[in-house]
């Protein structure tokens, strides 16, 4: 999901940076002081998640967890993912500084979209709804991120069908794994510490 430096065209980079700037501003503005420790924990989780490779047959996939970040933080996903990606670029050379805005937008915007779509389902009293909401958040955020990566490449000159096909095929296993993990975590948090989930509900 991390697009490398020097791949995207300036208009795509500027658009990505603009989306990230606006999202981060809204995220920081809406975040209450009490939510910052949760944001810190989720930023750390996101920072480490992409280093965890789940062996899957001959290849392996790595976690992204942007759906979980979105459900728990809402617009706070923007500053959270921005900081995590900045540190990944500095420490591990994943992505890069110039492409940071586009990479953040690719992962944080789907996080906010699943938050807006499925948050209500995730805080439902019915366990089945919470599991469905969590699963959809985890998997759809990956589909959306993959589509955004393909769109970025398309607007830079790649063939959209080819880019989209490659990105989506590569992410089918992780969609299912993230869906299961997000569903389990959302259900677990709702039962042990519901205020973490309800905190971003306006």
């Amino acid at each position: 999901m991390h697009i490398s430096e020097g791949v995207l065209s300036p208009p795509v980079l500027i658009t990505g940076a603009a989306i990230t700037l606006v999202g981060t501003w809204i995220g920081l503005k809406n975040t209450k002081a009490q939510q910052v420790p949760l944001m810190a924990v989720l930023t750390s989780t996101f920072f480490v998640a992409s280093l965890i490779h789940v062996p899957l047959g001959p290849s392996s996939v790595h976690l992204v967890l942007n759906g979980l970040v979105g459900i728990l933080l809402g617009f706070g996903a923007f500053p959270s993912i921005l900081i995590a990606l900045l540190l990944q670029a500095l420490f591990f050379q994943f992505g890069g500084i110039i492409v940071l805005g586009a990479n953040t937008a690719n992962m944080a915007l789907p996080a906010v979209i699943v938050y807006l779509l499925f948050k209500k389902l995730c805080i439902s009293e019915k366990r089945r709804n919470r599991i469905i909401g969590g699963f959809l958040s985890g998997s759809i955020s990956i589909i959306l991120s993959g589509t955004m990566v393909a769109l970025c490449l398309f607007f830079t000159g790649s063939n959209f069908n080819h880019a989209a096909k490659t990105v989506l095929i590569a992410h089918v296993p992780i969609m299912i794994i993230e869906g299961i993990i997000t569903a389990l975590v959302v259900d677990f948090i709702f039962r042990v510490k519901p205020e973490m989930l309800l905190g971003t509900e306006h």
Partner: peptide, 8 residues
């Protein structure tokens, strides 16, 4: 999980 690194 096998901790390694990707994306580069």
């Amino acid at each position: 999980a096998n901790i390694s690194y990707a994306h580069r």
